[in-house]
Amino acid sequence: MEGVYTGAEGRFDPFDLPTPNVTDETAHIYPDADSTADYDFSMINNYSDLDYSTWEATFGTNYQLDSSAGLYGAINVLDLADDQPYVYGDLSGSLVTYSAGMTMKF
């Protein structure tokens, strides 16, 4: 039996982006900086937040038939929760794999 949990988060702090100061040199470019530089960057930092939770678990068993042969069976679970979908959409999903077989040593 084996289990692994991984949590990963990423985020930006809000940008500190002051508008340019109007000086004698730049007055002809920005005659009224307050109205000309009409940008809102207050939400940009939230656009690329990331929040993934991943579970990986394996439940397996072996049965030894004799000194050289055995049987095995296992269930493997992979699960991803995407709590902050980004430009790729919601990537949440899971895969459950059932496996069985036999081993031989010689």
Partner: peptide, 12 residues
């Protein structure tokens, strides 16, 4: 083995 998928499986 047999794998059973749910929702988006490309990333997981």
């Amino acid at each position: 083995h047999l794998t059973d998928p749910t929702d988006q499986t490309g990333r997981v």
